[in-house]
Design a protein around this nucleic acid. Structure first.
Lengths: 341, 341
DNA sequence: CTGTTAGCGCGTTCAC
DNA sequence: GTGAACGCGCTAACAG
């Protein structure tokens, strides 16, 4: 039998459904014999009670909030998750956290659809993913409040967004201010499905170059899949250039790390020979002394949940949330251009 | 009204429940006027349809697996989470992941109770938490399959467990083998509620000391709350001793890091003056070159989920899982005792 | 102790 | 187009 119900169990055990329910909840006294019969039937049928029916019947409420994040275990998402968790803990409501990890951005549409159909969540937080208008409509029609953690502010109330363009500008400006002129950009392939972060930071990079009248060199733009490995390889190819850059701006801390190891493997030093600046200020960066742009990842997760909870519990009064401004965090991987290399 | 239902909406809109349901699912054509009336009532009542009833009615299945972890965002748990995620992704079933973070170990009993009562999960993975016999009974009675990620093997089938005692032994042995005799232990306060990891690793430490006939010095045992900060302070007090240790075994990588910064702040070098070995081999450790004991955190999460899924989908045939043996990972924070300090 | 029955809230045929 | 009635699987209250 596909999905046996208590009725099936009751029939097989030769008892009433009430009795079955009772032994399942080991509540009021049931005679040992009947209990045995019931348990036997349960085992034989491989019966499992439907949690949904149970919930409906008992009226036990519990709300779920869904968090949709690409590659949950990437450092930057862990940081956000940290904030999400603590926000959820701070308010002590009975919201459960359902984690959805989007590992194939192409199928993200599909996944959201499933989530909505499943009707498992009361609200969702969508991090670093592009949410199309259709998707927003879907959510709205399904009456599921949602907040987005985006890369750039578009003015919506249900958005928490640092300004990635400005961040890219800041990072590049820092390098420029140190006297560097040959600055490379290492980032993700530009994408529409996924987050447009790479594109935006690149825009900031270009703007800074222009503002400082520094040359834009096409070869210095290195794009690839996200991750340390790729960045490492990209950096290696950069070093193989006839005139390699003297500084590099990596769109994420992890990529910056990949660059650094590549530089070291080439027998060069950071920052003496080449300066490297990252982006995010992931927890890890503090330990390795990476210069970077802090975008308050943890806090964005925190504020996002706070906002969502706000929408969920007191929709008549939702107050906007704002992230603190980006900060340049200068540690040990950048240094004034020495003119040596 | 506390929880308006479609009946309330129907009454207010002066229509039947069927109609309400239809506009909610924007399915078959409904006249624009009635649609308006219904939507108006929905808004006015603040109506939200019950996801539970909806699920029961539509028969849409989706199972949840719960993951219970203390302090989800601690590095070691992030590593486990990584494995959990990928295991969940590999099998493409429709299991959702509900994350429960236990931040107050004292209330862990209570939390498990709520989880069971809520009936929100079909199975649970419990990581690094002590599960009492009563708790196991609770789970069994509720018919919720569970697997535990423990610190020491006790032979149960539903357990994934490295041998922490042996790990503690290995770490200490490494130090001893390098000629160190004055070895400190920095760990968590021993606990019964939480994981007994600290106690176990300490046991291994003591055993190694004994095996190598090295002195056991009570002052060298430093216990405190988990975390970098505490370890840092503990290490500072260790350095203030008339005869400080020449090596320290920290029960986790994070605590090892705390020790290292304390040592450096005191003007000493690692490993030249003092050797430090951690435990876990968290991702971070690779980046900072920490010598440590690898306990395959990620893989334990992976195997745990695999086992749980196994129990959930084919209970008649559950195959045991085994973790690879612990490994000593020698990087740059330990060195032969020079007799200098 | 145990069988029977009435909901839980919503989706979905059916007739109208 | 729209209302009424039934069923999803289970719990709980009520008789027996």
């Amino acid at each position: 039998m596909a999905n046996p119900t208590i009725y099936d169990v009751a029939k097989m055990a030769g008892v009433g459904v009430g009795t079955v329910s009772r032994v399942l909840n080991n509540s009021t006294r049931v005679s040992p014999e009947t209990q045995e019969k019931v348990l036997g039937a349960v085992r034989e049928l491989g019966f499992r009670r439907s949690k949904v029916a149970r919930q409906l019947s008992t009226g036990i409420q519990h709300r779920n909030i869904g968090v949709i994040i690409p590659f949950v275990t990437h450092p930057s998402f862990v940081d956000r998750l940290r904030g999400i968790q603590s926000a959820l803990d701070d308010q002590d409501n009975d919201f459960n956290l359902i984690l959805y990890s989007v590992n194939e951005p192409d199928r993200w549409d599909e996944q959201l659809l499933t989530i909505v159909e499943q009707a498992a969540v009361d609200g969702v937080l969508i991090a670093a993913l592009n949410v199309s208008d259709e998707q927003q409509d879907l959510l709205i029609k399904a009456n599921i409040p949602f907040v987005m953690l985006r890369d750039v502010s578009t003015g919506e109330l249900n958005c928490i967004s640092p300004d990635s363009i400005h961040g890219g500008y800041m990072a590049t400006q820092h390098l420029l201010g140190l006297g560097h002129r040959r600055i490379a950009y290492v980032g993700d392939e530009f994408s529409n499905i996924d987050s447009p972060a790479s594109q935006l930071r690149y825009d900031g990079y270009v703007a800074a170059l222009k503002a400082y009248d520094a040359p834009y060199v096409a070869e210095y733009i290195c794009l690839g899949t996200h991750g340390e490995e790729t960045a490492h390889n990209l950096m290696a190819s950069l070093l193989a250039l006839p005139e390699p850059p003297t500084a590099v701006f990596a769109m994420s801390d992890i990529q910056a790390i990949g660059c650094i190891t590549a530089i070291r493997e080439a027998g060069l030093r950071v920052p003496e020979d080449i300066s490297v600046i990252g982006y995010d200020d992931v927890q890890l960066s503090r330990y390795i002394g990476l210069t970077t742009v802090r975008q308050h990842l943890e806090q964005s997760g925190y504020l996002g949940i706070q906002l969502l909870l706000n929408m969920l519990t007191t929709p008549e009064n939702v107050v906007p949330r704002q992230l603190p401004p980006l900060e340049l965090v200068v540690r040990g991987t950048t240094q004034r251009y020495s003119g040596t290399s």
